[in-house]
């Protein structure tokens, strides 16, 4: 679905992304995980051409993004940003309907689509349709942000620290709703975060980044139980126990066995 080949992006002398290549399959949820400054957001923004790479190519559905008109490309990719980025002068309905309007949908079709999304995201339309973002709580604003990204039903969704601005309790509830959202089932999603828990909770595969390079890519279990090197191990160390316990609590028996082995090996 998405193929990235030898992408490099520099800001002045600083190499933000250093010769990175990867592929994402259709319907996969990928998490770019890393500390701030590791290049994960830069990498994300090159996919919908908010930033242009210095070298390298990106393909979506086999088409080089560099050959497409940026506006058309972006209208086909959902985008959610950390501080919601809602248009303060648009009503909730207008915010959610932004991309369909740009695509020239009929008014009736837009209204219908907005209503469906608001219901799915637990924003009762009759109550919230005509008010402005400033009147909503942070969690509600984030739902509107997600609804806006999904409005035109794009096959690909990019999310830049989507839950980063929420307090921990709201965050886990929004995250749970997010996981349960049927709209997202078939989507190819790339999500950027520095929150290890979040990454493990949402990802099919995690790309651990450092200094503009992918240190390790793999399923949460692979990272947790088969770290490729010292960096992965150290990065996960602090939350190791919680992460492993979470794996076990889900009733994942292979994981239980692996965790057991893991603890056994750790004994001096």
């Amino acid at each position: 679905m998405i193929a990235v080949r030898n992408i490099t992006k520099t800001f002045g002398a600083h190499k933000a992304v250093d010769n990175v290549s990867f592929e994402v399959k259709e319907g996969e949820t990928i998490v770019f995980l890393g500390t701030s400054g590791c290049g994960k957001t830069t990498l994300l923004k090159m996919i919908n051409r908010l930033l242009e790479p210095n070298t390298g190519e990106i393909f979506i559905d086999g088409k080089n993004v560099a050959w497409r008109r940026p506006e058309d490309l972006r209208r086909g990719i959902g985008y959610v940003i950390q501080n919601y980025g809602l248009f303060p002068h648009y009503t909730i309905e207008e915010n959610i309907g932004t991309v369909p309007r740009l695509l020239g949908w009929e008014k009736g079709a837009i209204a219908k689509r907005v209503t469906v999304l608001m219901e799915k995201l637990q924003l009762p339309p009759e109550q919230y349709r005509s008010i402005y973002p400033a009147e909503l709580s942070g969690g509600q604003q984030q739902r509107v942000g997600i609804a806006r990204a999904l409005a035109a039903d794009p096959p690909v969704l990019l999310m830049d620290e989507p839950f980063g601005a929420l307090d921990p309790i709201t965050r886990s509830s929004v995250r749970k709703d997010f996981r349960d959202l049927d709209e997202l089932r078939a989507k190819t999603i790339i999500l950027v975060t520095h929150d290890i828990q979040e990454a493990f909770e949402l990802a099919d595969r995690i790309f651990l980044l450092d200094k503009g390079q992918i240190i390790q890519q793999g399923t949460p279990d692979e990272l947790l139980f088969r770290p490729a090197g010292d960096y992965t191990r150290q990065f996960l160390q602090e939350q190791q126990f919680q992460l492993e316990a979470a794996r076990i609590a889900t009733g994942d028996y292979p994981a239980l066995i692996r965790a057991f082995d893991h603890f056994k090996n750790k004994r001096p």
């Binding site: 940026p70 506006e71 058309d72 972006r74 209208r75 940003i81 248009f87 932004t98 806006r148």
Partner: peptide, 27 residues
């Protein structure tokens, strides 16, 4: 204008003219 709002306008696929008249000038 809030940089987040501007980034969202770009990322939603607004053209420069649309950004100017629908977002920047209004805000």
């Amino acid at each position: 204008v809030d940089p987040g709002v501007r980034e969202a306008a770009i990322a939603m696929g607004m053209t420069p003219a649309q950004r100017l008249f629908r977002v920047d000038l209004i805000l």
